[in-house]
């Protein structure tokens, strides 16, 4: 089953996302701030990372940037969930390499679909790679 890391500093949202994603049976790991997020990122492998932007210790953009600059984690799908709605921040997130940006309030169904899509893409890509080999 796919491993998903959810990084979110708001307790309510963290629990809610866990419940919603849990329905689809993913293997969920959570982090409630930037520091914990980095620890968990270093200590495990993930297929998708769902991250908030404004958190203690480190902001979500750092998480995105770190994932994208790491060879081994380049293929991890990244979804940013944030209440920040200004254009600059959103384009910044995409430029750094986020795959999706969901603005709060989010639709639970949308989050699920996006995760499924990212996972499907990833699988087809890795299949391509293996075929080429």
């Amino acid at each position: 089953m796919a491993n998903i890391l959810v990084i979110e500093d708001d307790d309510i949202m963290l629990k809610a996302i866990r419940n919603i994603l849990g329905k689809d049976g993913y293997n969920l790991i959570t982090a409630k701030d930037g520091k914990e997020a980095f620890e968990k990122l270093d200590g495990g492998e993930y297929d998708v990372v769902v991250t908030d932007l404004m958190m203690p210790y480190a902001n979500g953009l750092e998480v995105v940037s770190r994932l994208r600059s790491d060879e081994t984690k380049r293929n991890v799908g990244i979804i940013v969930i944030s209440s920040v709605g200004n254009e600059e921040t959103i384009t910044e997130a995409f430029r750094l390499g986020a795959d999706d940006y969901l603005k709060k309030p989010i639709m639970a169904g949308e989050l699920l679909i996006r995760i499924r899509k990212l996972l499907a893409n990833k699988n087809s890509k890795s299949q391509l790679v293996t075929k080429k080999k």
């Binding site: 309510i12 809610a16 209440s83 309030p105 989010i106 639970a108 949308e110």
Partner: peptide
């Protein structure tokens, strides 16, 4: 208060 918190995070069907 809690419901409002949730509404700030979720729209759509859940909202």
């Amino acid at each position: 208060d809690t419901l409002i918190q949730y509404r700030k995070n979720f729209r759509g069907e859940v909202g």
